[in-house]
Design a protein around this nucleic acid. Structure first.
Lengths: 352, 352
DNA sequence: TTGAAAGCGCTAACAG
DNA sequence: CTGTTAGCGCTTTCAA
């Protein structure tokens, strides 16, 4: 590797600036114990020599890496992309670099992955939608390693996390559907291992209760947030003798798939059946009819996650709990007032 | 740092296995000079002790960082996400880490950014859709720094790059529209500073020529790949006395926006007007009507970019040129055969 | 086939 | 305020 040849190290800088390399190290780390004049001279030399501190060496020696790790399940839906955008913005402003890891990539040794990172590769970790966070959380809390969870509903542990008001969002959305006149609402759940999915389901149920609408088990389809579930779930509903007049999916991806199913059955949205999503991913506004949905402030969640991490970095002993950002219903074209006919003669509509 | 306490190192493994730590290192690196029996014993010990090699130490000692940098303009459209997915897969398999940089983040000092990375932060760089690559390419080629461009049509320089057959894709797509009977086709270009955009335009023109269809300047709208351009461009076309019967947008995002414009005018897709996109981003198949488009193998482009980078890393002197992956037309619902009526009485259709 | 020794570039005490 | 001295955990010669 001839790289070694032309790489400038703190030793080079020290020699050039006429100081010991220890002093150079201090300058790099913004140590106060450096005469301003000396510091300036060193900085100037670094600039002139085009010096860049070696990451691995720094972390090996036990210092800061100025890098934070981001663990995401994948980059598929744009959902994650929004969150990353927020994180990225904050990190950039703060002068941190971003190391991206998709857990998909190391599915088997996920935990080992984390423990590796925890060993100094990065200064902190942001875990987006962690699948089985209890594995990590143990290690990290124990080692007092800075981390923040994004969009994960605590499994009981009490740790820094950013989420949104899933329960309230689902509650409000359901209420809205009821106000439109819908009484038979089919609900497609997310992956119930995730707290967020459970909360959405509970919000839905609570709203029915509040409105004194009976909860029919047949009108709840258990999905996993995956596209196919939206499709299958919707078909299940539509094949009932008395199908629902509205379908509320636990995320936009499933809602979109549900729309497909509805259309295949020859029904119109929203005239014959209303569709409600959750998340407000970028596509939601682009499709036709555009999707009425519960908006999670994804980008903002990312930003705040980063901010919280910075705060932990600064005050390790400060207590950080879960932060919930408000969700918001975004009215679009996929929902509409229930029509009388629709209520009474579902079959007529079915084959209009 | 009490981390030190419970960390397992090669020294620990060596002690446990009764060998020198040099031997353990050899095992880690799959060095042939280890007696199978010894290797097995060491491996067993590593497993038992839950040993994980320290990345930073390895790279510090080896002069490599085992990290590659990825520079992307943003994470907005899912377009980039697909490419990253491909890159990420390969990197993971090869044991590399991914450092993600969005140029948006440091718009002003883009070039400085790169030169920073080039100095040892990463072993190589993948630049996706670089905006003004000539700035970097100079530095990098000069320093013989490993890099690969993705989806950038050379600005004359001869360097490792992955792209797709933009010209051919546009040519074929146009031909297809012509075969459907369309003779008046509106074309919305991409940002013509990008070679890919130019190639698509040229492919379109060539197809018209081949089919002896006159090229009307009014039927070419100069866009920038941004959503709004699709909308504006389509409106421009639709307001003509004799509007086109098909619109071919240089990317899917613009095509989707064009669909909106078309619908706002009260026209149906594809009955009244056909829409063709380019890229095949994930959304293309999700919208209704689903979008007929020219597929770029984005994920594969990412994979190959990584592979090429690895090859450069291994054989720095090997010559690497641009690789073009084939595009492919994906037939969906947004295009259809031209109807006689549509051809002759555009106004009638306009207000059906 | 294995062991020993010399760093990789930097941080973090510890002296002065 | 600054220099010196140990390592951090591993790869790589160089001997044996």
């Amino acid at each position: 590797m001839n790289k070694r040849r032309d790489r400038v190290t703190i030793v080079d800088v020290a020699a050039e600036a006429g100081v010991s390399f220890g002093t150079v190290s201090r300058v790099i780390n913004n140590d106060v114990h450096v005469k301003p004049q000396t510091r300036e001279r060193v900085l100037e030399t670094m600039r002139r020599l085009n010096f860049v501190a070696n990451r691995q060496a720094r972390s090996l020696a036990g210092g800061r890496t100025n890098t934070i790790g981001l663990l995401v399940p994948d980059l598929g839906t744009g959902y994650i992309g929004e969150i990353i955008r927020g994180i990225d913005t904050e990190l950039g402003d703060a002068g941190y670099d971003l190391m991206l890891y998709t857990t998909h990539r190391a599915a088997t040794k996920e935990a080992g992955y984390v423990s590796n990172l925890v060993q100094g590769m990065v200064d902190g970790l942001i875990l987006v939608l962690p699948r089985n966070p209890s594995d990590y959380i143990g290690i990290m809390t124990q080692r007092k390693f800075p981390f923040v969870l994004v969009d994960h509903q605590g499994t009981g542990e009490d740790c820094p996390a950013i989420g949104s008001t899933n329960w309230q969002g689902a509650f409000n959305a359901t209420n809205y559907l009821v106000k439109l006149g819908h009484k038979r609402i089919g609900f497609i759940t997310g992956w119930l291992d995730l707290g967020a999915a459970v909360d959405r389901l509970e919000g839905f149920k609570a709203a029915l209760r509040t409105n004194k609408i009976p909860l029919l088990p047949d009108l709840i389809y258990e999905g996993t947030f995956a596209q196919l579930d939206g499709y299958t779930g919707a078909l299940r509903f539509l094949d009932m003798k008395k199908p629902p007049t509205a379908i509320f999916a636990s995320n936009d991806v499933m809602a979109m798939a549900a729309m497909d199913a509805v259309r295949e059955k020859g029904l119109r949205i929203p005239e014959d059946i209303s569709i409600m999503g959750f998340d407000d991913i970028p596509q939601a506004s682009l499709m036709r009819p555009s999707l009425t949905t519960v908006r999670q402030p994804l980008e903002q969640m990312g930003r705040i996650a980063a901010q919280v991490l910075f705060d932990i970095l600064k005050n390790p002993d400060h207590k950080h709990n879960r932060i919930e950002l408000p969700t918001e219903i975004i009215l679009r074209e996929s929902t509409a007032t229930l029509r009388k006919l629709q209520e009474e003669e579902p079959d007529l509509i079915r084959f209009h």
